[in-house]
Design a protein around this nucleic acid. Structure first.
Length: 709
RNA sequence: GGUCGCAUAGCUCAGCUGGAUAGAGCACCUGCCUUCUAAGCAGGCGGUCCCAGGUUCGAAUCCUGGUGCGAUCACCA
């Protein structure tokens, strides 16, 4: 970096001397591998003002630099690129500076530096953590570490969503169907146990929902007095029966697609449950349609609604088959209607429970505390397994009332406004956004209110000037609005809020849904990765002399390394498609590959039991040594870049490049085998420096490195 | 429909504020373990950088329009 500023100064001097022109912006970039040189000046942009040709200019500047800058030992010009070769002495200087520093690249935080709070994980307490949480947790943890390494103070936090209807659902189901089960009595992890009852609630809910929908529908049909004459259906004006009619029409069409070889478009155009007015009794096609339509209606009329049992022929069987699907669609549509949902007893009971909780009912609160504790114990195990921690936990049960005061103050200042029904809103249409509610008409807080209050609380609790929220990109809009509101409320720190928005982790089958059991469980995944690491290690059999305990620890380190690297190497904002069928790789651009390289380096260091010789100024670097040192030089700026971009992926990719470079060095140049004592010293120390950086950068990703593997 | 994000090799992904012939890994094909750990190294095959315009000496990168995929637009969180 220092070098670049000397070069800039000298290039400016050169241009001034030769052309008598002051040049402003110069562009340097690392020289591409296929050309000789270390750093390249792009001369294209200067041509316009200097009115010369690129090769001539390159030669002129190159000569000047070679003569006047001691670090420059040579150059070559390719079109508008001046490739500058730096001296071995320059690289040696750099290397001597960093070779004994374990903290190379890491900037200590200034004493008076304000902190940045990183929020991540923030789970609901009604179900176990899954792969989606893992991405969140790894990202948040890593970004906090990177921010620290880049010279900031960072604090890790999570807001535990410990209250609300979701946990009441688990509580209710446990109370009703749990028979007093506990994590102890079942041997289940607490979060798993509570999660099971959340699923149980959903199953019961769906059962009841179906029953209520059916009954309601039957009642309305009876009331409509169709007398089993389904062709009269279209004359009934009733919303539920309209759904029935439209689904019946679909079924009818499907049946006629099957029975005739008419084009589906023609059928769609001609077949209506409602009427036959288009159909012509003398037209052959229309006759066919009328025939099957007649059979369909006849079948319907022979059966009462929701039963399709009165089957007399093969024909009926086909109709019954389509009808079953149709009735299912009808019920699904009706189940979405508020008049039905609001009549589901078990859901009402859960809501009742939430009200009791809010009123501080001792029994409900006791149950809530008990089950939440089970969940916390479970989460703790998962966090431990992942090797992450928090400086402070916030709990929604303690913060959900925050923010109301601020909103009321904002109301007085005219930032918010009240609607007739008493609800409070903010108008963000000037910013290209919508209106957003901040207080319900009954005066209670919404999600946004809480987040406003919690943010303010955190600034009170900690000496921080900014916050990073690690939350999925489905909440992009929410955070845009939140930050804008805080800014309008006049908080100066609102400019330093950052939504670390990351893409969803999807499965080949689509989105993960806890209620439907289509999730990749965090604990299971960690266990599987460890298992894979074990299998590979045992097959390779390089661990003679390790105890079983040491081996287990190693498998854990490798398995987690594979998982963490796999997730962190991807740009946070991109979505990840995770295929559980294809296991995470352990070869190539992977965590274990990098860990393996580290272990190799440690092996060399263990064997290098000789006095290191200092390296003389005249040392001539091997080409591989040179590129390794160049790669090491990039580490500090990579950390800064990763911090600015909140992107662990940049650290991962940097480390991979370093390790690739090292392995090439390792396999092409002998380290301990060389006769030359200086060479041997330098190479071992170089390997050691690479090892230090791997350990350091992997630390930023939350990945451990093994001494052997 | 409005808004936001993504689109690069068969697959998974890099590509810094615009720069040289667009790079890795996996998969496939060749070599390399009597020498420091082969979870490795050396090499080969593989590209309409979604499409069309524009800005520029120069575009995968910036702008405009379009296509595809995803997210979001609740007195849910």
């Amino acid at each position: 970096m220092e070098l670049q500023s000397t070069l800039i100064a000298h290039v400016k001097d050169a241009v001034k001397k030769i052309y008598d022109v002051e040049i402003e912006n110069l562009e340097f970039q690392p020289t591409r591998k296929d050309f000789e040189g270390d750093i390249t000046l792009v001369t294209f942009p200067m041509l316009k003002t200097l009115k010369t040709n690129p090769v001539k200019l390159g030669e002129e500047i190159g000569n000047y630099l070679a003569e006047n800058v001691s670090e420059v030992s040579g150059f070559n010009v390719v079109k508008g690129f001046l490739n500058i070769v730096l001296s071995d002495a320059y690289f040696l200087d750099f290397f001597n500076e960093i070779k004994d520093r374990k903290d190379f690249g890491i900037l200590p935080a200034a004493e008076d530096a304000k902190g940045i709070m990183v929020e991540y994980s923030s789970p609901n307490t009604n179900k176990p953590l899954h792969l989606g949480h893992i991405r969140n947790i790894l990202l948040g943890f890593s970004v906090a570490e990177i921010l620290s390494a880049a010279g900031n103070k960072s604090y890790k936090t999570q807001i535990v969503n410990d209250r609300g209807i979701h946990i009441c659902k688990s509580m209710l189901a446990w109370e009703r169907f749990g028979n007093g089960e506990t994590p102890k009595s079942t041997g289940l992890k607490g979060d798993k146990l509570v999660g099971n009852y959340y699923v149980k609630f959903d199953q019961e809910y769906k059962k009841e929902l179906r029953k209520v929908a059916e009954n309601e529908l039957k009642a309305r049909i009876e009331k409509a007095n169709l007398k089993n004459q389904w062709e009269n259906l279209s004359s009934v004006d009733e919303p539920f029966l309209k759904i029935v009619e439209s689904e019946y029409e679909k079924v009818l069409r499907r049946y006629i697609y099957e029975k005739t070889d008419l084009d589906t478009e023609i059928i769609d155009k001609k077949v209506f449950y409602r009427s036959d007015f288009i159909l012509d009794k003398n037209n052959k096609q229309d006759q066919a349609i009328l025939l099957f339509k007649g059979k369909f209606i006849a079948f319907l009329n022979r059966n009462t609604f929701l039963s399709v049992g009165n089957i007399e022929s093969e024909e009926d069987e086909l109709i019954a088959h389509y009808l079953k699907n149709g009735i299912n669609s009808i019920l699904i549509k009706i189940e979405g209607k508020p008049e039905i949902i609001n009549n589901i007893k078990i859901l009402q009971d859960a809501k009742q429970m939430l009200l009791k909780w809010e009123a501080g009912d001792p029994e409900v609160v006791a149950l809530w505390e008990k089950m939440n504790q089970w969940v916390y114990d479970g989460f703790e195990k998962t966090y431990d397994a992942l090797g992450v921690d928090f400086d402070k936990n916030y709990y929604e049960s303690e913060t959900y009332l925050l923010g109301k005061d601020v909103v009321n103050q904002g109301l007085e200042k005219g930032i918010f406004y009240k609607k007739e029904d008493g609800s409070v809103w903010i108008d963000l249409t000037d910013e290209g956004l919508d209106e957003k509610i901040v207080l319900r008409s009954d005066g209670t807080a919404v999600y946004m209110t809480q987040d406003i209050g919690t943010a303010i609380q955190r600034v009170k609790d900690f000496d921080i000037s900014g916050m990073v929220y690690t939350v999925g990109n489905e909440q992009d809009y929410h955070f845009k609005v939140l930050f804008l509101i805080l800014k309008k409320l006049g908080f100066d720190w609102a400019d330093y809020l950052y939504h670390l928005s990351y893409g969803m982790v999807d499965l080949p089958s689509g989105k993960m849904k806890s209620r439907e059991g289509t999730v990749v469980d965090a604990d299971d995944l960690i266990a599987e990765m460890t298992e894979t690491a074990r299998n590979i290690s045992e097959e390779l059999g390089k661990l003679d002399g390790y105890t079983n305990v040491e081996k287990e620890e190693l498998y854990r380190i490798i398995g987690l390394g594979a998982l963490k690297y796999y997730i962190l190497k991807v740009d946070p904002k991109k979505r990840i498609l995770f295929n559980p069928e294809e296991s995470v790789d352990f070869q190539g651009n992977t965590g274990p590959f990098i860990q393996y390289t580290y272990a190799r380096i440690q092996s060399i260091i263990r064997k290098a039991d000789f006095e290191f010789k200092s390296v003389e100024e005249s040392y001539k670097f091997h080409e591989k040594e040179r590129s390794l040192i160049k790669q090491l030089q990039l580490y500090p700026e990579t950390i800064q870049l990763a911090a600015e971009n909140h992107s662990p992926a940049l650290i991962a990719n940097y480390t991979y490049d370093l390790v690739k470079e090292f392995n090439s060095f390792y396999q092409n140049v002998t380290i301990l085998g060389t006769e030359d004592a200086t060479e041997k010293s330098l190479r071992v120390q170089l390997a050691n420096s690479v090892g230090n950086v791997i350990k350091s950068s992997f630390g930023l990703l939350g990945i451990q490195v093994p001494e052997r593997m």
